[in-house]
């Protein structure tokens, strides 16, 4: 069972308090954009997800805690959380993720 750092509560909490909520940084198109999108483009947004081997940006929900959604970078091979951050922050760059990893490894 993971220990997950909630960026809102600012503490590590056990996984049972959380729910996984899919891939992060998939922005819902606004109404004008939606109208301009082809069915294929809309399907891409709706249904197609990356299946990353390695560092994956994903959404978690602190359902049995503060009730907030937030994002996380997690390695899908080692199952390690690298960093959690609030919704609204930009997708972290590879170099940013590397910095976080370096910091975690001391």
């Amino acid at each position: 069972m993971f220990l997950i750092h909630c960026p809102h509560c600012q503490e590590d909490r056990p996984e049972i308090e959380f729910a996984y909520a899919g891939e992060a940084h998939i922005v819902r198109p606004g109404p004008e954009q939606q109208d301009a999108m082809s069915d294929a483009e809309w399907s891409e947004f709706m249904f197609i997800r990356d299946n990353v081997r390695g560092e994956h940006c994903e959404r978690w929900w602190h359902a049995n805690g503060c009730n907030m959604f937030f994002n996380a970078v997690r390695n899908t091979v080692s199952d390690k959380f690298i960093k959690t951050y609030k919704i609204g922050h930009k997708r972290p760059s590879a170099s940013q993720i590397q910095k976080w990893k370096d910091a975690a490894n001391g």
């Binding site: 729910a19 929900w61 359902a63 009730n67 907030m68 919704i87």
Partner: peptide, 13 residues
């Protein structure tokens, strides 16, 4: 409730 919270927090904050 989750569906509403999700849209409110992440798409229409």
């Amino acid at each position: 409730y989750r569906h509403m919270e999700d849209y409110l927090q992440t798409e229409f904050p």
